[in-house]
């Protein structure tokens, strides 16, 4: 800021300077405040989570209260459901994003879809749980891993739609024109040129979607439910890390609470690793 020597003594100037110092001080303080929460949360999480971390966590099933055990079945359950959700949600999201960016960039349908997609992006995930409950659990008459995976897929779709569209929009039109000029039909132009140019960004979108759903609890509570034991049957209730954390943390048993912390640490590490990878891959990506 330029300071004028002649005005330095006037009371008005002093008052303005004071106000500036106070508000700028508040900006520093606010940043310190925000960052200290991150440090506090991660600090406690590491402290509590690491003490319970051992090989057993990854090799044994969830224990009954009072016994020792691990988190193998919820970890596998989470991995399988996340995988299936991404498998179902990603193609749909990429295709829809392609329409928004390539075919109907300016038409009416696109602006409606874009608007609705943005709302779905931040809609309460518990409502998605209720939706899939009505759609699948109530119809089939039982909770199932499939229902959990579909619920997660519903959350994946808007994330992928959004990033796919954003990334394809960034592809320069000259590339498309070049492709068209050598006689490539539009669909091949999109698949061979646009997708390739936007690939890193689109992968980023998928990673962000995985990060988003791997911590989701609410949509699984009454779709996949929980399962104390190992199951290979996706038609049966399947346990997942977030739901097990929820159940164990609220229980009165000490060992369950410890396992909950360990599970929380595992999820957080996975999510942070995913989002950091995504950020490096995507570079300076504009966020919603």
């Amino acid at each position: 800021m330029a300071t004028l020597a002649s005005g330095a003594s006037s009371p008005l100037y002093a008052k303005r300077r004071r106000k500036n110092v106070v508000t700028m001080g508040m900006a520093y303080a606010a940043t310190g405040f925000g960052l200290s929460w991150l440090a506090l949360i991660l600090g406690v999480l590491f402290w509590e989570g690491f003490s319970g971390l051992s090989l057993r966590v990854f090799t044994e099933m969830t224990p009954p209260p009072g016994a020792s055990g691990g988190l193998l079945n919820p970890i596998i359950g989470s991995l399988v459901m996340t995988f299936l959700a991404v498998l179902m949600g990603t193609p749909l999201g990429i295709l829809a994003g392609t329409y928004l960016a390539e075919y109907g960039r300016y038409d009416k349908l696109s602006s409606v879809v874009r608007f609705i997609n943005d709302i779905l992006l931040s809609a309460p995930s518990i409502v998605v749980g209720l939706f899939i409950y009505e759609l699948m659990v109530a119809q089939m008459g039982h909770f199932s891993g499939w229902a959990g995976a579909v619920a997660l897929a519903v959350i994946v779709v808007p994330v992928v739609v959004r990033t796919t569209e954003d990334m394809l929009t960034l592809v320069p039109d000259t590339l498309r024109e070049a492709a068209a000029s050598v006689g490539l039909p539009r669909s091949l132009m999109i698949q061979k040129v646009a997708y390739r140019a936007a690939r890193a960004g689109m992968i980023t979108g998928v990673l962000l979607a995985i990060a988003r759903i791997s911590g989701e609890t609410a949509p699984l509570l009454f779709t996949a439910l929980n399962n104390q034991f190992w199951t290979n049957d996706m038609n049966a209730p399947v346990s997942s890390l977030p739901v097990v954390i929820f159940q164990f943390a609220l229980s009165p048993y000490k060992d369950w609470q410890e396992l909950a912390w360990t599970g929380a640490l595992i999820i957080t590490m996975a999510v942070l690793a995913l989002s950091i990878t995504a950020r490096f891959l995507g570079g300076e990506r504009k966020k919603s």
Partner: peptide, 20 residues
């Protein structure tokens, strides 16, 4: 990035941290 990491932490982590 740090602020956005704060956004990336799953809500259940905030829950267990809040409770204990």
């Amino acid at each position: 990035i740090a602020v956005e990491l704060l956004a990336g932490i799953p809500s259940i982590i905030y829950g267990i941290w809040g409770l204990f």
